[in-house]
Simulated scan of single mutants.
Amino acid sequence: MSFEMLLALDVANDEIYAQYRREIAPILSRYHGSFGYDFKVSEVLISQVSASINRVFSIRFPSEDMKNQFFHDKEYLTVKQHYFTPSVRATTLIASYEKPDN
């Protein structure tokens, strides 16, 4: 089993957000995390939130505990503050779930 989250973002600055993704890559790797799917979205037909959405992706970890460790990692939090915060207007957690390994 692995732990996966499906997230939606409203990315305001693609360049800064791309730098965020580059900067977190080695940190994510340390926690055996990875992105499963990643979409740029041009039209949202149905949403349960009022925030705009222009990016949808899945991120997975071996366990929920590893996910928690990643998102509380001090180096990750520094990168998030520097790149994610100024580049993303809104974050929506669509779902989180345990997923059987393929």
Rank of each mutant, 00 (worst) to 15 (best):
R30I: 00
Y31V: 04
E64C: 06
I16W: 07
F84A: 03
D73A: 00
M1N: 13
S34C: 06
L45G: 09
S47M: 07
Y31C: 00
G33V: 03
A18E: 14
P26I: 01
Q81V: 00
V44H: 02
V79R: 04
F39W: 08
T85L: 13
L45T: 07
L45P: 00
R22I: 13
Y20C: 14
S87W: 11
D73I: 03
D10M: 08
M66Q: 12
N102M: 14
S50V: 10
P62H: 10
Y76W: 02
R21M: 15
I24Q: 05
A12D: 15
T78M: 06
P100M: 08
L9W: 03
E4V: 03
F70M: 01
V88D: 04
F70Q: 02
Q81H: 09
T92P: 03
Y37L: 14
K67S: 15
I59D: 03
V44D: 03
F70S: 00
A12S: 15
S34R: 12
R60I: 01
N68I: 01
S96I: 02
A12I: 14
L7Y: 05
H72E: 05
A95Y: 02
F39C: 07
M66T: 07
D73T: 01
H32N: 09
K99D: 08
N13K: 06
V11H: 04
D14W: 15
K40F: 11
G36K: 08
E98D: 10
E64Q: 14
A95W: 06
M66S: 10
K74H: 09
I16K: 13
A8Y: 02
N68M: 09
Y31R: 00
L93S: 05
F35E: 13
I46V: 13
D101R: 10
E98M: 07
R22K: 15
I53R: 04
D38M: 10
S63Y: 09
T85G: 06
H72T: 07
F84H: 04
D38P: 00
S42E: 13
Y83F: 15
Y97K: 06
N13V: 06
S2L: 09
Q81A: 15
I46Q: 11
D65V: 13
V49F: 07
D101G: 05
H82R: 12
V11Q: 02
A18L: 11
L45Y: 10
A25C: 04
N54W: 04
V44I: 08
Q69I: 01
L6S: 11
Q81E: 15
T78C: 07
K80Y: 09
V41D: 06
V41A: 12
S42D: 15
S47H: 09
Y31N: 02
R30Y: 01
P86G: 08
N68T: 06
V44F: 04
P26Q: 02
Q69D: 09
F84I: 05
L6Q: 07
I59T: 10
R55Q: 02
N68Q: 14
R89D: 13
K80A: 08
S96F: 04
F57Q: 05
V44P: 00
Y83G: 02
L93M: 12
F35H: 12
V49R: 07
T85P: 03
H82F: 03
A12F: 08
T92G: 09
D73W: 02
